[in-house]
Design a protein around this nucleic acid. Structure first.
Length: 528
RNA sequence: GUCCUCGUAGCUCAGCUGGAUAGAGCACUGGAUUCCUAAUCCAGAGGUCAUGCGUUCGAAUCGCAUCGGGGACACCA
């Protein structure tokens, strides 16, 4: 819709100009303050310039009215134009708000270590990534959703050790000496029980079995993680194993060497990252020959870039903030354009219950499980609340609030608007396709505003995706629902002279709500 | 200490590529149902947009400084 307006205006106006939505719809559907900037160039009053410009647009069909006010140029779309858009949307709902974007994107998110169940912080990144994925696809991008499995390194060994010790504690007579670092939490004991069933209590008798338990435990955890994600309606296209990637280490290392990206000092191998914007150089191979975590990420990103996507997005926890510079440095040494990598940080989540704060810590075993919250409030409510806030700001919410079934829970508010529309159709005994021929013309102001708002979804989706600010979609759906509730209370629909028109209008609103919710991973309700 | 980020209504937060009278939800006060679901709506009250300076026709929005909250600064992953 915005595109049509832009194209039309460009017939008369050269160059760039801002096209915005006026705060008050009674001014018009779109507006531009272009006269202010032209005033400088032409040394004329903005009011006069705006007046002159307004005259030029009178002949255009898509505008009902174009007028100049206080230097602003306000455009009002015609009923015929809006009706045509609505008819298309209702007839072909699946295509509504689809875009023609091109380009491939590799989207990596969650990538939590397979050493424990997902906690609430992971859930936020997961929901954000999954929704970005859904919206991006709808807009036409070719996106792949990928999970990087950190199945190499100390933490997997630590997982095996923790299971081993827990089993030893529970199923043998040995006294257990707990080391400084190990994974706590009941799930470790659950795993030990399972291990006892799968193998035998004998497995806890010999330290040599820790490796077996590590590998076995990692697979179990990955399985659990996939379940946690699936329960929140999240799936991935690909899982990439860090361990398997390490077979490509020599090859990657050679590449870094040819680009003069590494050097040896104090018997360690360093990445020359300080010359590419990082604070200092970083160790990638320790004195004892073991590669660091960064080494794994270098191989991974090399492999990613070899696959040749147009753009790469990583969603990381905010604690990885300092990590961005070194990965980008490595990418440049590998001979790729680090600009193609975009990192979105997902901030901490503070969870409250009845006003009391929860603390979480992955190591301490005192963290909040994603699965517990999903079970308590439902996947949809959780998804929605995460999507109402920017990903890079702290989010605080009370689970009790998500359990209420009234207007303090925004998802019910939107669902109720959708269910209402469906009920109206039932009451009328008609379905949307029976009213599709009715022309939406001579509408009153309320109807016109509602129609226009419902047709804004395409540009909202694009804006949300491109700015990576998905809360814009959530906010939009909330305000569209509010607009419909207002409308409903003010205007009777069934049995009136305008019944068919208002039904068609309602159908349009429903299409928008349904599409928007679906892209957020939420199923619209037809009855509540 | 260095870097990042945030500071907007009592609370949780939108708005920030400069633009028309700064918004929403919750909470609070009052009202609406013989009529499509009151899970809704209407009205009211609530603000030195942290502070100061600067940039300009115009600043919540951009820049600098200060104060305050949070985070990152591993040969851990």
């Amino acid at each position: 819709m915005k595109k049509s307006v832009l194209n039309t205006i460009q017939k008369y106006l050269e160059g760039d100009f801002p096209l915005e939505k006026p705060k008050d719809l009674s001014f018009g559907h779109y507006a531009t303050p272009v006269a202010f900037s032209l005033a400088k160039i032409h040394r004329k009053s903005p009011m006069i310039i705006a007046d002159e410009l307004a005259q030029k647009f009178l002949e255009e069909d898509i505008f009902a009215k174009v007028d100049a006010l206080k230097g602003y140029l306000n455009f009002k779309l015609s009923d015929a134009f809006l009706d045509q858009k609505a008819t298309e949307a209702i007839l072909n709902e699946k295509e509504f708000a689809k875009g023609q974007k091109s380009g491939s994107i590799l989207l990596e998110y969650v990538s939590a270590n397979p050493t424990g169940p997902l906690h609430i912080g992971h859930a936020r990144g997961a929901v954000f990534g999954d929704t970005l994925y859904k919206i991006g696809k709808h807009l036409g991008y070719d996106i792949t959703a990928e999970y990087y499995v950190n199945d190499a390194g100390n933490q997997i060994r630590l997982l095996g050790l923790s299971i081993y010790l827990a089993g030893r504690d529970k199923f043998t007579n040995h006294d257990v000496q707990w080391p400084d670092e190990f994974y706590r939490g009941e799930y470790i004991y659950d795993l030990a029980c399972e291990a006892k069933n799968s193998f035998d209590a004998q497995i806890f008798e010999d330290e040599k079995n820790i490796d077996i338990l590590s590998n076995w435990g990692k697979d179990k955890m990955l399985e659990l993680i996939r379940e946690n994600l699936a329960d929140a309606n999240i799936t991935f296209d690909t899982f990439v194993s860090e361990k398997e990637l390490f077979t490509k280490w020599d090859e990657t290392f050679e590449k870094l060497k040819t680009q003069n990206g590494v050097y040896e000092k104090e018997k360690k191998v360093w990445l020359r990252s300080s010359e590419k914007g990082d604070e200092k150089d970083r160790v990638i191979v320790r004195e004892d020959g073991r590669p660091t975590y960064l080494a794994g990420d270098i191989i991974y990103h090399n492999e990613k870039f070899e696959r040749g996507y147009d753009h790469y997005i990583n969603i990381w926890g905010a604690d990885h903030h300092g990590y961005i510079a070194r990965v980008k440095a490595a990418i440049e040494y590998l001979g790729y354009d680090a600009q193609k990598l975009e990192v979105i940080l997902s901030q901490m989540v503070a969870l409250l219950k009845g006003g009391e704060p929860y603390k979480m810590s992955k190591r301490a075993g005192n963290f909040i499980l994603m699965s517990d919250v999903v079970e308590e409030v439902g996947a949809e409510a959780l998804r929605f609340i995460f999507l109402t806030k920017k990903s890079d700001t702290h989010l605080e919410f009370d689970v009790d609030m998500l359990k209420t079934e009234d207007s303090s829970n925004p998802i019910y508010y939107i669902q109720y608007a959708h269910a209402r529309i469906n009920q109206i159709f039932e009451k009328s005994g008609k379905d949307p396709h029976q009213v599709i021929q009715t022309k939406l013309e001579a509408l009153d102001e309320d109807s016109q505003n509602l129609l226009f708002s419902a047709l804004l979804l395409p540009e909202v989706l694009e804006d949300s995706f491109e700015s990576r600010q998905l809360q814009k979609l959530a906010d939009y759906l909330k305000s569209l629902a509010a607009l419909y509730h207002q409308f409903y209370n003010k205007h009777k629909i069934v049995g009136t002279q305008n019944e068919d028109k208002l039904l068609k209008l309602s159908a349009m609103v429903a299409v928008t709500l349904r599409t928007g919710l679906r892209l957020m991973g939420i199923e619209a309700k037809y009855k509540m």
